[in-house]
Design a protein around this nucleic acid. Structure first.
Length: 409
RNA sequence: GGAGGGGUGCCCGAGUGGUUAAAGGGAGCAGACUGUAAAUCUGCCGGCGAUUGCCUACAAAGGUUCGAAUCCUUUCCCCUCCA
């Protein structure tokens, strides 16, 4: 069987490693406990985080033991890496709430039974640290001079960096040490922006324990233009189905740029690489098949086969004009009575969330971007009544591909 | 603690008394073209209402003025240099 390291490398996850050969060897000869950190800065993971989840799944499948560390302690401080300025501080309640939500999500993707995987919150050891004690035990091992030369602080030195944030690196390093002590965790993985934080932990463990541990970073999920993937006008693409519906998730990937298809297939699905390459090399309109597969496979991983099928079916129905079975299109239920009098189109658009304000709705109608059952609307005073509904359903469309269904109840 | 500089719309960034809902760029949205792609072109891009209107907005709160993002005062925050 191929080494996971090779698998990860072939699929394009790996960006940097501390000791390529040693890591490979280690992964070959034993079941390795490794960790990845997640910051509870929101109450759901988003598409960008999913690279990390995918890696965990790959690793777990290969018999290694993942630890997902929820940064309930580190979030109290905030990671300055990659930020141009200090981010707003979250309250303790927010952090706790987010941490609980993330924990629940992560446990859906990695197997926690029989100690095969672990989810742990670093608040457990960080929040009650004694300052003096911490400085003496941990702080001594960090050279400020060296930290300042780290790339991640450089940008912040121009804009200003608070002492609070400066400590983030120590805390994350300490995490690694704790995990090494508690679980014999020997490998830390993370996004490429975590490189210096990871190195800090490795150094610390060497100094405190005289042990060699390793680090590895992966690519951030970006488009071919180098922009972060997973962001849209309405915000991030979330894993939580209440924040981003399976249909929208599906559509997001379905609409991915040609140049990104192969990369996304490798990173976000478990399809064999030969298949990934084959699909990625399709040209012209053919590549749409690859996009469909990508969208389907990924939705399946995140939300399960059933949701993936529903999303695919809905998408196909809508885009091939067979307006049946739009079951999974985002929909809103509204009371039938309201439509006996009639509801203005602008209100309807806003209520369904298709537009964020009536002004936007007006604008879109003016530009010809709103459709009712595939008929372009020109009249912004249009009143929708029960007559517009077929079987108590009405399909609204914004632009080419954003649909929303209204159901009468 | 002292001296100086600064805080503008999603982001970057012009604007130093009126014609500024605020140049320009990026992002985003819509239209055309396409393959539910990219590139390109066109339009839009605070809210409410509608045939030229109203409200909210240039860190916050006050003030000067017919009129302020622009001037003054206070507060908060950030940066640079000195301690």
């Amino acid at each position: 069987m191929a080494n996971v390291f090779d698998i990860l490398k072939e699929r394009g996850y790996i960006e940097q490693t501390t000791h390529e050969e040693e890591i490979k060897e280690l992964l070959e000869k034993e079941s390795v406990t490794f960790y990845i950190g997640f910051d509870p800065t929101a109450d759901s993971l988003h598409l960008g985080h999913f690279i990390q989840i995918m890696v965990m799944m790959h690793m777990q499948r290969a018999g290694h033991r993942p630890i997902a560390v929820i940064g309930g302690g580190t979030a109290m401080v905030g990671d300055p890496t990659g930020k141009t300025e200090m981010r707003k501080m979250l309250t303790e309640e927010e952090i706790n709430k987010n941490a609980a939500a993330l924990e629940k999500q992560i446990s859906k993707f990695i197997d926690l039974d029989d100690d095969k995987g672990i989810v742990v919150n670093n608040a457990l050891w960080l929040r009650n640290l004694n300052y003096i004690h911490f400085l003496r035990e941990i702080g001594v091992h960090f050279s400020v001079n060296r930290m300042l030369t780290a790339e991640c602080f450089k940008t912040r030195l121009e804009k200003g960096l608070s002492f609070l944030e400066f400590n983030y690196m120590l805390m994350q390093s300490y995490d690694f040490l704790e995990l090494y002590r508690r679980y014999n965790c020997k490998l830390q993985l993370g996004g490429n922006d975590q490189w210096s934080n990871i190195l800090g932990g490795i150094d610390l463990i060497r100094r405190k324990e005289g042990a060699s541990v390793y680090g590895l970073t992966f690519r951030l999920l970006t488009t071919s233009e180098g922009k972060k993937m997973g962001k849209t006008e309405s915000g991030a693409i979330w894993i939580d189905p209440d924040k981003t519906s399976p249909y929208d998730l599906y559509q997001y990937l379905r609409n991915i740029g040609d140049a990104d298809v192969e990369k996304a297939l490798a990173l976000l699905t478990f399809l064999p690489m030969e298949e990934v390459k084959r699909l990625g090399s399709l040209e012209g309109a053919e590549i749409n098949k690859a996009k469909e597969i990508l969208a389907y496979e990924f939705t399946k991983i995140v939300h399960g086969e059933e949701e993936a099928k529903k999303a695919q079916k809905a998408a196909r129905a809508l885009f091939s004009n067979e307006a049946e079975d739009a079951a999974s299109v985002p929909s809103t239920e509204m009371e039938k009575e309201r439509f006996t009098k009639g509801v203005g189109i602008l209100d309807l658009l806003t209520e369904t969330g298709l537009t964020s304000s009536k002004s936007e709705g007006r604008r879109l109608i003016k530009q010809g971007g709103i459709y009712l059952e595939d008929e372009r609307i020109n009249d912004m005073d249009l009143i929708i009544t029960t007559k517009n509904f077929k079987d108590n359903k009405l399909l609204l469309r914004r632009g080419k591909k954003i649909y929303h269904q209204i159901e009468l109840v």
